[in-house]
């Protein structure tokens, strides 16, 4: 319990980070059937009849540091969070944020058209909109009365 002895910063609630970890573990368990690679960054996937939407949390990563590639059945999110250059004189008291390269492949729940993909980064959240391929969109079947 290093920080309790710290003169300058005394965290008022240290238990929370443990609870966050536990929360992430349970999330991985909940999603195990989807057969997606887990890791950083975490993603949420949504869909409707027209599009698949993938959102991901990338705080501190600018658009120029993200490399996106869309395939008909999967999305690849690559990049690097460089972070600040640390000098020897800095005394780090907490270092919880992740830095370094990331590579994530997401299996998409529907085939998409890689030519109509848009992405927007705002406030550390990247939102990717992928139009579903015509042949894979759900079709409304009309029922005739006999």
């Amino acid at each position: 319990m290093y920080w309790l002895n710290n003169r300058f910063f005394n965290e008022l609630s240290g238990l929370d980070l443990l609870l966050n970890d536990l929360d992430q573990t349970s999330t991985r368990w909940r999603n195990r059937k989807h057969n997606c690679s887990t890791g950083f960054p975490k993603v949420n996937v949504w869909k409707n009849n027209e599009a698949v939407v993938v959102t991901t949390e990338l705080p501190g990563v600018g658009p120029s540091e993200i490399d996106l590639k869309a395939h008909p059945d999967r999305l690849i999110i690559k990049g690097e969070r460089i972070g600040r250059t640390r000098s020897n004189g800095d005394g780090y008291q907490r270092s919880e944020r992740s830095i370094g390269k990331f590579h994530r492949e997401v299996n998409l729940p529907s085939r998409i058209n890689p030519k109509s993909v848009t992405a927007e980064a705002k406030d550390g959240i990247l939102r990717i909109n992928l139009a579903r391929a015509e042949e894979d969109k759900p079709k409304q079947i009309s029922i005739k009365s006999a």
Partner: peptide
């Protein structure tokens, strides 16, 4: 309500915090 991840470092001039809060403007 989540506990955001934080980096804290000290220099001669003072302390610096970086707090990750994706989605917050």
């Amino acid at each position: 309500v989540y506990t955001p991840k934080v980096d804290i470092w000290e220099t001669e001039a003072g302390f610096n915090l970086e707090v990750e809060m994706p989605g917050v403007d």
